[in-house]
Structures are given as C-alpha cells and as structure tokens.
C-alpha cells in the first residue's frame, strides 16, 4: 500500500521564520430558522416584525424580529410593519471589511419606525443621509442576495 499526496502543497511566504499560506475555501450552510418569514417576505416587498400580545410585555414590535418575546419567552406573533420611517443615525462606510457585497461609499443608517421598539440597521440605496430624514423601504427583488441587504431605504 502506498500513500500519495492528493492535496496541494502550501506556498512558502518566508523562510525565516518559515511562514506558509494556508488557503480556506468552503461555505457554511446557514438557516434563518424561525425568522424565515421575515426574509421570505422581503421577496414580496413586505416588512414583517414580531410582537407579543401578553399584557406585561413590550407592546411595540421587534425588528429584527424575534421568534420568542424576550420578556416572557413565549412565541411571538408576526405583524406587517409600516414601510416608512426616519433616520435615527447614519455613517458612510468608506473601508468595509472583506465579504461586503455593496459598493462604497455606502451610507449605513439606523431606522426609527412608528410602533417599533428597535432601530434596525440598514442602508440608504440613494441620497445623502441626515438624522430625522423621512425614508421609505426599498426591496431588492431583482437579483436578491437572500440576506438583510435585500432591505434598503430611500428618501421618502
């Protein structure tokens, strides 16, 4: 029986100290689990959040949604949210990390939506961001990424 090398040898970057280049090339198979309705709804240009109907819990909606109410840990209910909001804060990203799928500069925003207790992070697909600026939701239905990037906002 002879054992043969079937993988690739590693590239040497330096001899002293000996430094090698160790490539990685694989993927993760990731499920959105109980938050699937939110991501699927983006395909239909709908913004879904969750809320809890229990009397002692936060009455407003959560976006990002939560399959369980964080106050009572019982299953949440899905509700459709308004597709308008205002910019709570913003930054324009010039130097993103690896894996970023959008062109730069890219204005990131945090969005205030009536009846929602959170201020979800998103981005402005066009225009210059300002705090307090009214915006409306935009959905990437052509060539979707199947990520949170399929929701964006534009000046209202």
């Amino acid at each position: 029986m002879a054992v043969e090398l079937i993988g690739q040898g590693l590239e040497v970057l330096s001899d002293d100290p000996l430094v090698i280049k160790n490539p990685k090339n694989w993927f993760h198979i990731h499920s959105y689990g109980g938050l699937t309705p939110f991501f699927k709804a983006l395909r239909d240009e709908k913004l879904l959040g969750t809320h809890c109907t229990a009397a002692d819990c936060e009455p407003r909606a959560w976006l990002p949604p939560r399959a369980h109410c964080p106050d009572c840990l019982q299953p949440s209910e899905w509700i459709e949210l308004p597709k308008v909001g205002t910019i709570y804060t913003h930054t324009t990203i010039q130097y993103p990390g690896e894996l970023f799928k959008l062109s730069t500069p890219c204005p990131l925003i945090s969005v205030e939506i009536e009846g929602v207790c959170t201020k979800p992070m998103s981005y402005l697909i066009e225009g210059e961001p300002e705090i307090g600026m009214p915006i409306r939701a935009w959905f990437r239905t052509d060539n979707p990424t199947n990520t949170i990037l399929d929701l964006a906002w534009m000046p209202a």
Binding site: Y32, T91, G97, L99, F100, L108, M121, T147, I148
Partner: peptide, 17 residues
C-alpha cells in the same frame, strides 16, 4: 450575522452610527 454583519463587515461603522 443575520441582521448586522452584512452591513459593512466593519465594527468601526457600527460605532460610527
């Protein structure tokens, strides 16, 4: 990773907000 990381892959931006 579902709701933030894709938005820049950059903690400096999250602080910038």
């Amino acid at each position: 990773k579902d709701f933030e990381s894709e938005l820049g892959w950059m903690y400096a931006s999250y602080y910038a907000l």
